[in-house]
């Protein structure tokens, strides 16, 4: 197993946000983590990415324990993530954000030693073009990120995470705020990233059409626990999932 979580539990005061969660993701697999609001999906991603340290449990990536590592240390192990809420950055342009991803990725040391210390980075420019052109943002590379819509800022955040050339990509609602057409374009980009780099992807997402289009497997969470693990065909007929999502008896 590439990513392995065992018994991850995190509480905030009296609220158990994630409750003994076990989750496996195989190398090169795209897994969607879905569930109602408050199910603990983002909290779990935050545990894996070092933002939170759970009270108990274990998370390993390629056999090495990654729980409690800083985002910087995780970056060096090939782990990159996007955020549900994109932070305010006033001074940076779209291209700056993508270049940041390149600068923080695993290959940064090699890139610097090769004299690519400057931000003149053809790959960053190419990624900006590939990822953002379908969203009509091809000309926006020098535009301040703050001037973009929420959805487009999230797309730039995705471009930053991909620019790091990660082995494990954690995506938190990557297509939120985008139109249906744009969401499908980005879903194809995400699959393309897996095909191109062979990276493993764990993705929190609400839009089921995007999940079905992108993911190999679906894990459903409710009240901090895993209630389903299977294919997109199976999830639609699973009685427990229908009860949680649709309120069926």
């Amino acid at each position: 197993m590439a990513l392995e979580a065992r018994g991850v539990t995190i509480r905030f005061g009296g609220v158990v946000a994630v409750n003994g969660l076990d989750l496996d993701v195989r190398q090169g697999e795209i897994v969607a983590l879905i569930g109602p609001n408050g199910a603990g999906k983002t909290t779990f991603i935050n545990c894996v990415s070092g933002a939170y340290v759970p009270q108990s449990g274990r998370v390993t990536w390629k056999g090495g324990d990654i729980l409690g590592l800083t985002p910087n240390a995780l970056g060096q192990r090939g782990v990159s993530r996007t955020f549900q809420n994109v932070a305010s950055l006033h001074d940076l342009t779209v291209l700056d954000i993508v270049r940041l991803g390149r600068s923080l990725g695993r290959g940064r040391t090699e890139r610097r030693s090769l004299g690519l210390f400057t931000t003149r980075d053809p790959l960053a420019e190419e990624l900006t073009e590939t990822l953002l052109a379908p969203l009509g943002l091809a000309d926006a590379r020098h535009r301040p990120i703050q001037m973009l819509s929420y959805g487009h800022r999230k797309a730039v955040d995705l471009a930053r995470a991909i620019a790091a050339e990660p082995e494990l990509l954690l995506l938190d609602e990557p297509v939120a705020g985008l139109s249906s057409r744009e969401a499908h374009e980005l879903a194809d980009v995400i699959r393309g990233v897996r095909e191109r780099h062979g990276c493993t992807i764990l993705m929190v997402e609400h839009k089921m059409d995007v999940v079905n289009r992108t993911c190999d497997r679906i894990v459903v969470m409710a009240a901090g626990s895993r209630i389903f693990d299977g294919s997109s065909d199976e999830v639609q007929v699973d009685p427990e999932v229908r009860r949680v999502y649709l309120g069926e008896p």
Partner: peptide, 25 residues
């Protein structure tokens, strides 16, 4: 303006919490 370290400095100056979250020391 033009170096990778300068870019990290700008990001850290702009929003330290966001910079930390994306892996900037």
């Amino acid at each position: 303006r033009f170096t990778a370290v300068g870019l990290m400095q700008r990001c850290a100056a702009d929003n330290p919490r966001a910079a930390l979250a994306i892996g900037i020391h």
